[in-house]
Design a protein around this nucleic acid. Structure first.
Length: 957
RNA sequence: GCCCGGAUGGCGGAAUUGGUAGACGCGCUUGACUCAAAAUCAAGUUAUCGCAAGGUAGUGCAGGUUCGAUUCCUGUUCCGGGCACCA
């Protein structure tokens, strides 16, 4: 009886489905465990071997937890809204719903092939109206909420209305417009439209004006990455900045809590670091400067993290978009300024980032230094960003590299306030210098001067302490079709929520995907839509993925997005697995939504993921062939077009190498059967070829000839009778012909082998190139395991005899190692431990049921099919999926003695078997009595004998 | 430029708290079985000197701490990833 993985896997996959083996109930009497994968966007390319890596790891852990007695939630769904499907629709005229459906069917087939323990009854797509009904509902809750900074949580907007009706907004400054101040009487005097406008500035989901890239020729808005050097990527048409109405999420209100929350979760340091950097919290001060001779202009407010450098200010820089710019620019500078602003507008974001030119223009105005009284020139430059801080800075060229370069470029004087720390050729951002030329700060160390400077500013009423964040509010609308419609109606410029009872607001079917007349989304072209004055933007891709982990808990609920009972039971995702590419996008948004839903009392926890594991990327290992570009006598050039000649990697030398020339000439004459051929200038071109027609590095010549018609008559110059390909590690991509389809491997070796091999490749978190070569070793292991139960000639070989002590020892040692490895997420060593166990049982000729049964259970998470089959063959009723993980019986792991490594001066020289309970004296006596030790001592007494129990012995000579 | 990872045989990797470096697997070599091949089994496989016993070197590089360092510290090189005018 052979290990026939094909039949076994088919049989059990069918039976598991028939028996609903992976169905999960909200059985609150059992301890829960929630294992989640980042759900995929169903792209048209299908899965390659890199995709299932994380899924296999999470599946192993989910199955392991199940055997350990947990009620395990391990769901899967699809992040089905998104741009690629719409782009595909524009190019191919296939509706996104149709292509998405096809892609999902394909994904599902590929996933089923690998036999994941997903409960498909809980599955959904973000594009299902039954799902996005609740995405829209949560959006409405965001729209209906504001962030009360005093309570430090989101609360209903009605509460704000009640407060400001009574006391105005003095206690709750407006997050969207800090200058907005009004009393209760003021509020009462506003008309409804003005009130709604003000409330919009408070809402957590709000509508405002933002700049987008508008391409007139294409009649569409473009994303930043679709604009290259100020022109459209497609067609090279000019792109201009245009202000458009956009929806935003006020994620900045959660900035601090998103930072603090990181301390309570188990993410990698790298991940925490990325999120921390993205949030970019910085501490500093805002300082107001008067404009000399222009009291009507008001104050110029700057943000700085270094108020200690206040006396080193040599000029001010405001962003080209700054509101004050137009007011302060002097008539003499007007023309120059207009030219400069035209130039700035012509530069796209991308261009600005790509080439950092030093540009700027003097406004003609001067700011008054509040302490020194000096007049400081006010400039504008694109290096100061409108969106950060106040959009204006005080430039301290001796301490800031950018300011210094700017000063150099425009020949502005540089004041040195840091003495020897400044060398005159580059800025020094030290905080250690003792301040000079700094008025009342003279003699202070800079880092101590920061607080003193702020204190003086506050005393004078011209500045205050200020915390800033790099993170901006998240743009939440897209001028696209394939996304969730906003449940918002516009009337006289006022947005209001659709009633909950009208949800879901379904996406209408359309045939054309072009933008609306004003650059709105395609929905603006649907008369039935615009007649109702519905919002024409749709939500971005991350809307549906910001809360999907909650829906799995209660996927069929029509009354609410997820019942409180379900979310209280399942709680946080215990283990979340996915790639690092979502580090700041999805992860931050879903953390914010969770905190929001917690604030509003819809769920009981405020961090979605307890533990996050990032699987590494599987890189492609590309293969190359080397084609000769033949020139020479006769019509060799023509001949080699029909009959391309390829040279094996080891032979390809520098074309000028005489030996190489000789070998090639010889071969070419042979190939074309013409001894008169003389070659010149042999050039070589390197070509990517399909990795699937290469075995390791050896090219399958027949497969290559039939790969492409133009290679049908290819000829090869071989080394050792083989054609060896070149290899390089690159990104796995269809374009580079280095993708490997899991289906092919599953077909050839079975899903169990494939699962174990992916894990055996190395640590889950680590990126590594794919190499199919070692998969046979894992397959061999499963066959070897099979032979513990069945023999090809004798059939069944397993017996019901009672195992002997050494056999128990092997299995319990194995159980311990596999369990530890699985707990540590070290699946590669888990596979290794299973291999060692099988090797040892084979060597011990152990075929005893009591031992093998335990082996089968611990194998189940890794290779479920073969485990289930053997479980049944051993005569068990019921599925191994529901077996209990065997407990380690400690008495079998206790050893009485150990082979101690004995080192002389730290270098291991011999091994001695010594009882584990030996004392220092006993050990010394045994060690010193040994001949080898005596040899090394050479008659001298040892300086010291170090004895670490159960570890080693070291003799210092 | 800044921040974060990483570097171990021909290859993927192991070594959980400072305690036998190279587990497990691939590949390779030799042998058994076979007409032959595949499969399987057995032995070997860090380098180097040696018939062997055994010696010497060895975890990117240079130092340090320690009885003892892949592991800790300092410096440095290379590779991967993230951020990038954030005042």
């Amino acid at each position: 009886m052979e290990y026939n993985f094909g039949d076994i896997e088919k049989k059990w996959q069918q039976r598991w489905i028939a028996e609903g083996a992976y169905k999960v109930s909200n059985d609150t009497s059992r301890p829960k465990y929630y294992v989640l994968d980042m759900f995929p966007y169903p792209s048209g390319a299908g899965l390659h071997v890199g995709h299932p890596l994380g899924y296999i790891a999470s599946d192993i852990f989910a199955r392991y937890k199940r055997l350990k007695g947990f009620n395990v939630l391990h769901p899967m769904g699809y992040d089905a809204f998104g741009l690629p499907a719409e782009q595909y629709a524009i190019d191919h005229g296939i509706h996104p719903a149709v292509s998405t459906e096809n892609n999902i069917t394909n994904f599902r087939k590929q996933l089923d092939n690998i036999a994941f323990s997903f409960d498909w009854d809980r599955s959904f797509r973000t594009s299902d109206p039954g799902y996005y009904k609740w995405t829209q509902w949560i959006f409405l809750q965001l729209f209906d909420s504001w962030y009360d900074k005093r309570e430090n949580k989101a609360v209903p907007i009605e509460w704000l209305v009640r407060i400001i009706e009574k006391e105005g907004n003095a206690a709750h400054p407006c997050p969207g417009d800090a200058s907005l101040r009004f009393t209760a009487a003021g509020w009462a005097a506003f008309d409804d439209r003005r009130r709604q406008e003000i409330l919009m500035h408070y809402r957590l989901a709000y509508c405002g004006y933002g700049e987008v890239n508008w391409c007139e020729a294409l009649g569409t808005v473009l994303a930043n990455d679709e604009v290259i050097n100020g022109v459209s990527e497609r067609g090279g048409y000019p792109v201009v900045k245009k202000k458009l109405r956009q929806w935003y999420l006020r994620i900045t209100d959660y900035a601090d809590r998103l930072l603090q929350g990181l301390e309570t979760v188990d993410y990698s340091d790298a991940m925490k670091e990325m999120q921390t950097n993205w949030i970019g919290k910085s501490f500093g001060a805002e300082i107001d400067f008067d404009i000399v001779g222009q009291p009507e202009a008001g104050k110029l407010r700057v943000y700085t993290t270094r108020p200690d450098t206040l006396f080193g200010v040599d000029f001010m820089v405001i962003s080209p978009e700054h509101a004050l710019l137009d007011t302060v620019v002097t008539p003499a500078q007007r023309a120059a300024m207009d030219d400069y602003l035209t130039y700035v507008k012509s530069r796209s974001e991308r261009e600005r980032m790509a080439e950092k030119k030093i540009t700027g223009c003097f406004t003609g105005a001067y700011a008054l230094h509040p302490f020194s009284g000096l007049h400081i020139p006010v400039w504008t430059s694109e290096y100061v960003l409108a969106g950060y801080g106040t959009g204006a800075i005080m430039a301290v060229p001796c301490g800031d590299e950018r300011d210094f370069k700017f000063a150099r470029h425009f020949d502005l004087p540089v004041t040195n306030i840091i003495g020897d720390y400044f060398n005159g050729v580059e800025a020094n951002s030290t905080k250690e210098a003792i301040l000079q030329n700094s008025g009342f700060l003279d003699g202070l160390v800079m880092k101590d001067a920061i607080l003193i400077a702020i204190h003086h500013l506050e005393e004078k009423g011209i500045g205050s302490r200020k915390v800033n964040y790099r993170m901006r509010d998240a743009a939440f609308s897209r001028q696209r079709y394939w996304g969730e419609p906003f449940p918002i109606v516009w009337k006289d410029g006022v947005a209001s929520a659709l009633p909950e009872t009208s949800l879901p607001l379904e996406l209408p079917h359309i045939e054309k995907y072009g933008p609306g007349p004003e650059g709105e989304g395609p929905l603006a072209n649907v008369p039935a839509w615009t007649a109702r004055h519905l919002e024409t933007n749709t939500m971005p891709g991350y809307a549906g993925s910001s809360w999907y982990f909650l829906r799995y808990m209660d996927p069929h609920n029509d009354e609410t997005f997820c019942s409180r009972a379900a979310s209280d039971y399942w709680g946080q995702v215990d283990l979340y697995i996915g790639g690092t590419e979502h580090a700041v996008g999805h992860l931050l948004y879903s953390r914010m939504w969770t905190k929001f839903l917690f604030d509003r009392g819809f769920i009981g926890h405020d961090e979605p993921y307890k533990r996050l594991v990032n699987q590494g990327m599987i890189q492609g290992s590309s293969r190359f062939v080397y084609r000769l570009e033949l020139r020479g006598t006769g019509n060799i050039e023509e001949l080699s077009k029909r009959t391309p000649v390829f040279v094996s990697a080891g032979l390809r030398g520098i074309a000028t190498n005489p030996q190489f020339h000789e070998i090639v000439s010889l071969n070419v004459r042979n190939i074309f059967n013409d001894n008169s051929i003389e070659l010149e200038n042999i050039a070589i071109s390197e070509l990517h070829i399909d990795v699937n027609i290469v075995d390791g590095l050896e090219l399958d010549l027949q497969a290559f000839k039939s790969w492409r018609p133009e290679y049908a008559y290819a000829e090869f110059i071989l080394e050792d009778g083989k054609y060896i390909c070149g290899a390089e590690v690159e990104k796995m991509s269809k374009r580079l012909y280095n993708t490997v389809n899991p289906d092919v491997l599953v077909d050839k070796f079975g899903a169990d082998t494939f699962r174990m091999y992916e894990m055996f490749l190395g640590p889950v978190e680590q990126s590594k190139p794919w190499d199919t070569k070692g998969i046979e070793g894992v397959h061999r292991f499963l066959r070897k395991l099979w032979r513990l139960f069945f023999d090809e000639t004798r059939g069944k070989v397993w017996k019901t005899d009672k195992p002997a002590e050494p056999e128990w020892k092997i299995i319990y040692r194995t159980i311990k190692k596999v369990e530890d490895a699985t707990e540590r997420f070290s699946f590669n060593t888990g596979v290794s431990a299973l291999m060692i166990g099988v090797n040892e049982l084979t060597d011990a000729k152990c075929h005893k049921k009591d031992v093998l049964e335990k082996l089968v259970i611990i194998l189940t998470p890794y290779a479920p099919h073969v485990a289930e089959e053997l479980w049944e063959q051993l005569g068990n009723n019921g599925s191994v999926l529901n077996a209990a993980y065997p407990a380690v019986e400690g008495q079998y792991l206790v050893e009485l003695a150990k082979n101690y490594p004995v080192a002389i001066n730290g270098k291991t020289r011999l091994e001695l078997n010594i009882a584990l309970d030996a004392t220092q004296q006993q050990v010394e006596a045994i060690v010193l009595a040994d001949d080898t030790v005596q040899k090394w001592l050479a008659g001298n007494p040892p300086k010291k004998v170090i004895y670490v129990k159960n570890k080693m012995i070291n003799v210092v000579v």
